[in-house]
């Protein structure tokens, strides 16, 4: 099936945003090594989060006007569902905000000693998974089922890889446990709450993959795919802030 021009341009945009995010992440890493300047890191994080919110999570869809006055129609309910999901994300963001504030209050401009290579690796894994998630959703919206399945599969794999990296490796090789000082407490709490969200995202991806393989989604009706994508990108946005907060800001304790 030849790709429609809209689809190609959507996929291209996805790739472009991914490259932008990758460059910014590399920049962050370099900045943290060269000049410990947390204000700059915050700006870069905000910019990255903005890119994801706008291009991957389609926040602007919330403000599209309804043409359909019939409250029972699929289109109207879809828009209601979007609002519901976003309200949930706003609510959820307060947990992560609270964790960030606790981290700033307790650790200030210090950070726990962590394996930088591993940190950058898991961050990259999550970033690449976001790219494939976006690809899968774009494919579904344009009716390319095979690319959709492939994209979801890769995202799922990368999600599990991220979990293995954080819980399976990082938690095991860290020089401290959750009970070792306040830095240990903060590190395990932040990564733990985030990993729990990744885990729920992985389960969501499995459900979408299973139902996708059975052909339950169509170009018109694929709310579950969209919801899964938005949720997955949200988890990525959280990590955009958590990564510098844990690995890059300030001096090692």
């Amino acid at each position: 099936m030849p790709a429609s021009p809209e689809k190609s341009s959507a996929l291209r945009m996805g790739l472009l945003i991914f490259l932008g995010l990758a460059v910014l992440t590399a920049l962050e890493f370099a900045m943290a090594i060269l000049l410990a300047f947390w204000q700059l890191l915050l700006l870069v994080s905000l910019f990255k989060a903005g890119l994801v919110l706008y291009y991957y999570m389609h926040v602007s869809r919330l403000f599209e006007a309804d043409q359909d006055a019939d409250h029972e129609s699929y289109a109207y309910r879809l828009a209601t569902n979007r609002i519901g999901l976003w309200l949930f994300l706003v609510s959820d963001a307060f947990i992560f905000g609270g964790l960030l504030i606790s981290r700033i209050n307790l650790l200030g401009l210090t950070r726990p000693e962590l394996n930088q290579v591993l940190g950058l690796s898991v961050t990259s894994v999550l970033l690449i998974s976001s790219f494939f998630m976006n690809r899968a959703e774009t494919a579904m919206a344009h009716g390319d089922r095979r690319q959709f399945i492939r994209g979801i599969g890769v995202t799922l794999f990368l999600g599990m890889l991220f979990l293995a990296g954080v819980v399976g490796v990082e938690w095991q090789i860290a020089a401290f446990g959750p009970g070792d000082g306040v830095a240990g407490a903060i590190f395990y709490a932040m990564t733990g709450f985030h990993a729990f969200h990744v885990l729920t995202g992985v389960i969501f991806l499995m459900v979408v993959l299973r139902n996708g393989l059975r052909g339950r989604y169509s170009v018109e009706k694929h709310w579950a795919v969209e919801a899964c994508a938005v949720y997955w990108h949200f988890v990525d946005v959280v990590w955009i802030f958590f990564y510098p907060a844990l690995y890059l800001i300030g001096t090692v304790l």
Binding site: I101, S102, N105, L106, P178, G179, D180, G181, V182, A183, G184, A185, I186, Y188, A189
Partner: peptide, 19 residues
Amino acid sequence: FGMGFFDPAKGGNPVLFQH
């Protein structure tokens, strides 16, 4: 798990909880 957010002995801050 002995995570010392609010335990002064581990560098925690009881007032943070109140905030």
